[in-house]
C-alpha cells in the first residue's frame, strides 16, 4: 500500500468530514431540508403519544431529594411599571383572566386562586440546556379552572400570556389538552413552602411536568382556550418557538 494513497484517503476522509459538518449548516437554511430536519419533533411526539400512557405521572420525589437551591432562570424580574406596581401592592389587584373558547370567562383574584383545592408535588424541573432542579410546587390544577370556565369543543390548545416582556411583547407559551388536563399540570403559587417569589414567577407560574422548562410560563396573566395557534405571536405556539426554532413539543 503506497503512502500517497493512504495520505490521499486520509485527507479525503478529513475533507469529507469537514464538508459534512459545513453541509449540516447549509441544510438548516434550505426550506425543504429544514422541513425534514424539523419533522423529528412531529415523529418524536407521535411516537411518545402512541407508545406510552398519556396520563403517566412525572416522577415525584421526597423532601430529602430536593435541590438545596432552586436556581432562577429566564426572566429574573419583569421590571415593567405595571408589574412593579403589582409587586408593591402584593398583587392585591392582580387578576388572572381565563377566556377564549370558554362558556364562562373567569377573572380570579390571587386570594380566590389560593382558595382553590391545591396539589403539592415535588418534581424535577429540566431545562432545555441540560440542568435539573427538584422543588416542591403547590397550586390548583389547571383542569379545575378549565372545567369551571367550561372550554368549548373547538378548543385544541391552552395559551398562557405572561407579564414579562421579550422583544417588547409578553412572553407566551401553549400546551395541548392532553397536558392541560394532566393531574400534575398546576398553576403554582408556592415553591418549597414559600409564596412564589419574583424570580420564580410570582404570583403564579405554570407547571407542566412532562415538558422542558421553557414551557413552564412564569408571571401568568391570561389563560386562553384556542382552536389554533395561528395568529398568536408568529404562530408557532410560544416565544422561543417563534424566534429561535425551539420545538413546540418539549417532552424530549
Amino acid at each position: 500500500m503506497s503512502l500517497i494513497t493512504r495520505r490521499t484517503l486520509i485527507a479525503g476522509g478529513a475533507a469529507g468530514a469537514g464538508l459534512l459538518l459545513s453541509g449540516c449548516d447549509q441544510v438548516a437554511q434550505v426550506p425543504a431540508l429544514r422541513k425534514i430536519l424539523f419533522s423529528g419533533e412531529i415523529m418524536n411526539r407521535g411516537l411518545q403519544r402512541a407508545l406510552t400512557n398519556r396520563d403517566a405521572l412525572a416522577p415525584e420525589f421526597s423532601a430529602a431529594e430536593m435541590s438545596p437551591r432552586f436556581r432562577v432562570n429566564g426572566t429574573h424580574n419583569p421590571n415593567t411599571a405595571e408589574y412593579t406596581a403589582m409587586v408593591a401592592e402584593n398583587f392585591a389587584h392582580w387578576r388572572l383572566q381565563v377566556g377564549g373558547l370558554v362558556a364562562k370567562p373567569l377573572s380570579l383574584s390571587l386570594a380566590q386562586l389560593r382558595g382553590l383545592p391545591a396539589r403539592t408535588q415535588i418534581t424535577r424541573h429540566d431545562c432545555v440546556e441540560g440542568w435539573s432542579a427538584i422543588g416542591k410546587w403547590h397550586g390548583p390544577r389547571l383542569a379545575t379552572l378549565l372545567n369551571a370556565a367550561g372550554i368549548r369543543d373547538a378548543a385544541r390548545y391552552i395559551v398562557f400570556t405572561c407579564a414579562d416582556l421579550y422583544g417588547g411583547a409578553p412572553y407566551y407559551e401553549s400546551i395541548d389538552l392532553v397536558d392541560a388536563f394532566h393531574p400534575q399540570t398546576i398553576l403554582a403559587w408556592a415553591l418549597n413552602d414559600h409564596v412564589l417569589d419574583v424570580g420564580h414567577g410570582a404570583p403564579v407560574r405554570l407547571r407542566v411536568e412532562r415538558q422542558l422548562g421553557y414551557k413552564h410560563a412564569k408571571y401568568v396573566m391570561r389563560i386562553d382556550a384556542v382552536a389554533s395557534l395561528a395568529g398568536i405571536g408568529l404562530g408557532k405556539g410560544g416565544y422561543w418557538e417563534d424566534h429561535v426554532d425551539y420545538d413546540w413539543y418539549a417532552g424530549i
Partner: peptide, 19 residues
C-alpha cells in the same frame, strides 16, 4: 453542529437522528 452555537437547531439534528 451547527458550527455557530444554536441550541435549538442542534436539538433538531440530535432528536431527528436519534430516531
Amino acid at each position: 453542529i451547527p458550527a455557530h452555537y444554536n441550541l435549538a437547531i442542534a436539538r433538531r439534528w440530535h432528536l431527528l437522528f436519534a430516531l
